[in-house]
Write a protein that binds this DNA or RNA. Structure first.
Lengths: 113, 113
DNA sequence: TTGACGCGCAACTTTTGGTTGCACGTCAAG
DNA sequence: CTTGACGTGCAACCAAAAGTTGCGCGTCAA
């Protein structure tokens, strides 16, 4: 039923740019603000801000390596996020099915009136 | 892989207030801007703006009834949104499983070195 | 017919995603 | 060892979105 606690992860994952960043990080294993900005239509600074958001949400972790800062996805946390996404989807799906079932019941009752 | 086409539905459903509005509309069957604002921590005007967004995304439809305007969820469109949510989740899930499998393979190779 | 209710419009603030500009550390080549 | 290139961080600024208050207009019922 879309609990309030979920909002942190949801809002982190709700932004399209952040979703694509996660896609790229998953595909490449790791990345920096600069490397991600080269593959996305936004500036490095915008990426850096998003990385802060993702870091605060625990979805990525930074590992300073020399003059660069490599980010990597926290797989356990992303798995949690995926679970929450699908739980909201499942809740709506259940409601939709219930509605459909009720509608069909009403229809059946009408049929043999 | 988080296609760009999905962004419209995503952003409609990405906002926490709009998700709760959809929850309430599904639970009650229908509702007005005023009735929803009574059960959510925002003003009627804010709800009204969100209803415009949801309407443009095709997730709800309005039915003017006297002096009030009853909104109802478009079940087919919400079902599409649910499908897109779960497809993104599934894509990430697949990547996570692949990473896990690779990690396990490396571990096994290390084991009988 | 008059008051209460629901809605829409307009102006304003705050947050957020995005930008440009600049200064500071770090690494590698001369 | 120095210098230039590269990566990062910080700050000011802009635009769009979420939310607010205030007001006026239609509609229904007492």
């Amino acid at each position: 039923m879309t609990a309030a606690v979920d909002d942190d992860l949801w809002s982190a994952v709700g932004d399209p740019t952040r979703r694509r960043m996660l896609d790229l990080l998953l595909a490449d294993g790791s990345g920096t603000a600069t490397s991600l900005s080269e593959r996305l239509p936004v500036t490095r600074q915008a990426i850096a801000k998003h990385l802060v958001v993702l870091d605060r949400a625990g979805l990525v972790h930074a590992a300073p390596a020399g003059r660069e800062k490599r980010y990597r996805v926290d797989e356990a946390q992303l798995a949690r996020a995926v679970a929450q996404l699908s739980s909201v989807g499942a809740a709506w799906d259940a409601r939709l099915r219930r509605i459909k079932r009720i509608a069909e019941t009403i229809q059946r009752e009408k049929d043999h009136q």
